[in-house]
Amino acid sequence: MRPRTSLTVLAATAALLTSAATATAATEPVSRPRVAAHFDLAAEQQPENITVGPDGSAYLTFSFARQIARVTPSGRTHVLATLPAPAKASTPNLGKAFVGGIARAGDGTLYVTYATGTADLTGVWVVRPGGRPHRIAAFPADGLPNGLALDQRTGSLYVTDSVHGVIYRVPAHGGRATFWAGGEALRPSTFAGANGLKLHNGAVWATNLDRGTVLRIPVTARGTAGRIQVHATGMPSIDDFAFTGHGDTLLAARDDNEVDLVRPDGTHITVLTAADGLQTPTSIAVHGNTVYVPGAAYLTNTDPNLLTAHLDR
């Protein structure tokens, strides 16, 4: 997600310069990072979120270009859809229209979140193979729908709202968005709260960007939200994340140009930095032994890209 003030930009830029001067290489269990694709900054092709298809193709949202794109395993980029522009965007915190999270169903259907500050466009949108994008659920225009996860078993989508600091649930076939979880742990403190989102091992997991935390929310037998548990702390500007396997180890993207490995006990180490090619990483995907890291260049203003690396199991 885009940083909020010039002071933040200056501080983060200084951190990037320090990181680039001191870091040398990826850290186990991540190795062999490389830039798999470069995007057009002038066209605002800044990748915000990612999901991966069975063939290893990466499906990305280009946040401010309002686009959904596919990057093939060979590195070729194909724009699949462009969401309609609002008459006048007034997206909270950002000003611009913003395409955020993305999820892919087994049949190739893509779901994305879209925030414009207008009632006619803000919400969850769907693009079916060969079809045109259309909205399936409306969200409050004064919010910022962001992270997105699909539960194919129940046919439900979960969505974070980074401004209101809540999680909504939406039928995947379309319908009314309903409140699912809220509380202090999800709320923003200065800019954005609940952000990245995943379903894993009977729980909804989320990050809070402002608080630098990873949260676990058990899903009860009735499908309601259990008590919010703080799983990890101390990761400023944390964005989205992905689990490395069946356990609770995860990789988290941080807007301050780091990717952290978070262990099941909540401790964490940095495994990728600017020295490895990161450009404001926004999200993570893991497919087999490959880690995908989109970089939106929100802070660096240089070379938005898709970085891949090997994950040692």
Rank of each mutant, 00 (worst) to 15 (best):
P3I: 11
S6G: 11
L7I: 12
T8F: 07
A12Q: 14
A15Y: 07
L16E: 14
L17V: 12
A21E: 12
T22G: 11
A26N: 01
T27D: 10
E28P: 14
P29D: 03
R34H: 15
R34L: 10
L41Y: 11
A42F: 05
E48S: 13
T51R: 04
G53D: 12
P54C: 05
L60D: 11
T61C: 01
F64L: 14
R66L: 12
A69R: 11
R70Y: 06
P73I: 09
R76T: 11
L83K: 08
T91M: 00
F98A: 09
V99Y: 06
G101N: 08
G101C: 08
I102R: 05
I102D: 11
G108A: 08
L110M: 06
Y111E: 11
T116K: 07
T122S: 15
V127K: 12
V127H: 10
G130F: 03
R135D: 14
I136P: 02
A137T: 07
P140I: 03
A141N: 04
D151P: 08
S162H: 01
I167H: 07
Y168F: 13
V170R: 01
P171Y: 06
H173E: 14
G174C: 12
R176I: 12
A177C: 00
F179D: 10
W180F: 07
A181N: 02
A185F: 01
P188K: 05
P188G: 04
A192Y: 08
A192K: 12
G193F: 03
L197R: 09
H200F: 07
A203K: 02
A203W: 09
T207N: 07
N208Y: 08
N208L: 03
L209I: 12
L209S: 15
G212M: 00
G212Y: 06
V219I: 15
T224Y: 05
I228C: 07
V230H: 04
A232K: 04
A232R: 07
T233N: 07
S237M: 10
S237Q: 13
D239M: 03
T244Y: 00
G247V: 05
D248M: 15
T249V: 00
A252H: 01
A252N: 03
A253Y: 00
D255A: 14
D256Q: 06
N257C: 02
L261T: 03
V262T: 04
P264R: 04
T270P: 00
L272W: 02
A274R: 13
L278F: 00
P281T: 01
S283M: 05
I284A: 02
V286Q: 00
G288D: 01
N289C: 02
V293P: 02
P294R: 06
A297I: 01
Y298E: 09
N305M: 00
L306W: 09
L306D: 10
A309W: 00
H310D: 15
H310F: 10
L311N: 09
